[in-house]
């Protein structure tokens, strides 16, 4: 095995000898692009909501105190009877719903068939990038392992105000990329037929997002 490794590294060295590459240090790479905008708080949340809707996600906006009621309302509207939740989901989020809850966590992992038989999954998210309408899941306790948000056909995701940031550079800076990450921008979709976007293929066909804001005084 190591012979192929040595051979490839030797070939690269030979290529660099034959055609010396231009010197360009990492620190000298020009990064003239924008990182983080002016918008904050409500303005940022408005951009997020606009972008989520543009990519056909369902969006509810509620005050923090209204979150449990909004969760219950969303699940009722969708007709969810069996809901998957990760162990670390804040219990208060489920305070007003009466659906059957399937918990997944260390020592009690749900099988794929359990997930496939559920009507939906409820999670939080690590970061929400407003400019692209992207939610990032990083397998934190309120999000769980990756399969939970993949197999059920309906994903209800709660975005707290502290998770909202401006754009990709701002969001990436907040993330630990060595955690398993799933970046979600709208429901699953395809452009494979005549390059027209169609929502709903293998991932959840419906993405609903509850964007929470704090009470304004």
């Amino acid at each position: 095995m190591s012979t192929a490794r040595d051979e490839i590294l030797r070939r690269i060295a030979a290529a660099h000898t034959a055609a010396p590459p231009p010197p360009l240090a990492y620190a000298d790479i020009e990064r003239g692009y924008l990182t983080g905008g002016e918008a904050t708080g409500e303005a940022l949340a408005e951009v997020l909501v606009d972008r989520l809707r543009d990519y056909k996600a369902l969006v509810r906006r509620v005050e923090r105190t209204q979150l449990p009621a909004a969760v219950a309302a969303a699940l009722t509207a969708r007709g969810v009877a069996r809901l998957v939740v990760p162990d670390g989901l804040p219990p208060a989020w489920l305070a007003e719903t009466t659906v059957d809850v399937l918990r997944d966590g260390e020592g009690h992992r749900l099988g794929v068939d359990d997930l496939d038989g559920a009507d939906g999954v409820l999670t939080g998210c690590a970061v929400a990038m407003a400019e692209t309408g992207t939610l990032v899941l990083d397998a934190s306790p309120d999000q769980g392992r990756r399969a939970l948000t993949l197999v059920p056909d309906y994903h209800l995701c709660v975005v707290l105000p502290e998770s909202v940031c401006d754009d990709v550079p701002a969001g990436l800076a907040r993330l630990d990329v060595t955690r398993p990450l799933t970046w979600v921008s709208g429901p699953s979709a395809t452009s494979d037929i005549e390059l027209e976007r169609v929502e709903g293929v293998h991932g959840p066909r419906t993405l609903e997002v509850i964007v929470v804001h704090d009470t304004q005084d």
Partner: peptide, 16 residues
């Protein structure tokens, strides 16, 4: 603006 899904993984994550 962004594709629907981007997955990132680093080696093996126990349990996930």
């Amino acid at each position: 603006r962004m594709n629907p899904y981007t997955s990132m993984w680093t080696g093996v994550t126990p349990g996930d």
